[in-house]
Design a protein around this nucleic acid. Structure first.
Lengths: 142, 142
DNA sequence: CGGAATCCCTTGGGATACTG
DNA sequence: CAGTATCCCAAGGGATTCCG
């Protein structure tokens, strides 16, 4: 990923500043960085994007593969999610004009960098869900 | 719990396996790792958690500070989000029994590790929103 | 000041049925 | 197979009011 943005720079030295906090500051200066974050957050946040991207991983997969690969998803939501990802340039769709139609999806380069976010989140989830569950129990019976 | 991650750290050796892909595999073996991911994803994904945690950053802040610090949020959602975060053990709430009540919020250690996710996402957003916007334009007028 | 409660509209998203 | 189209309910979340 291109961490080296020059203009509105992201200033790699996080010492006191959260990127989000830094966004707060840059709000009064630059253009609305807030929208950018919101924008990406909305995509990260929706119920399926990350799972789809994650499941897509490195290989090209066809629609039905993804449908089976992602347990709870409906075919409607898979379609919608894939359209979004395609629009955002994270995924490329290739349709083959065959008699039983075949469509394959693949991550773009940009999509590949997005996977790292999936990594980060999933790893954190795996590492810390125990602590979270415990905290919840403590909070609930109290 | 571990996927090799011990404490707070993220990203072990990604070679072929997405953490999400790894979750796919472990689905048939271990307990429902899916729920863990969904669980954390739901928290990451909701409209405000990341912004609140990010804004909270290192320091303790009071309710009204956060309210002003996070542009679009309603006081209702701030309350709800903070309760969730407290329940999950990412944030501690300290109420001072004073005449005009004062309540301060602060990240826990666990909450601190969560900030790294905010970093990752925010940085990615800043670095790549340009490409995304361009992709969208291309997709839309077509 | 820091909430809790209520109201109410908007959105997300599942189920189902139909089509090229 | 890979969608699109409808229907419809449930959750999300803003605005407002009330309270200790």
């Amino acid at each position: 990923m291109g961490a080296g943005t020059k203009g509105t720079s992201v200033s790699p030295g996080h010492s006191t500043g959260t990127a989000v906090a830094e966004y707060e500051r840059s709000c009064e200066a630059g253009p609305d960085v807030g929208r950018m974050i919101r924008d990406v957050l909305d995509r990260v946040g929706d119920k399926w994007s990350l799972l789809v991207v994650g499941t897509l991983g490195g290989e090209r997969r066809r629609f039905s593969e993804l449908l089976r690969g992602i347990p709870g998803i409906s075919q409607r939501m898979l379609t919608l999610t894939l359209r979004q990802l395609e629009r955002d340039g994270l995924v490329v769709r290739t349709a083959y004009a065959e008699v039983p139609p075949r469509v394959e999806y693949e991550l773009t380069e940009l999509g590949g960098t997005f996977v790292e976010i999936a990594h980060t989140i999933a790893d954190w989830a795996i590492a810390n869900h125990g602590a979270i569950e415990r905290s919840r129990s403590r909070y609930d019976d109290r």
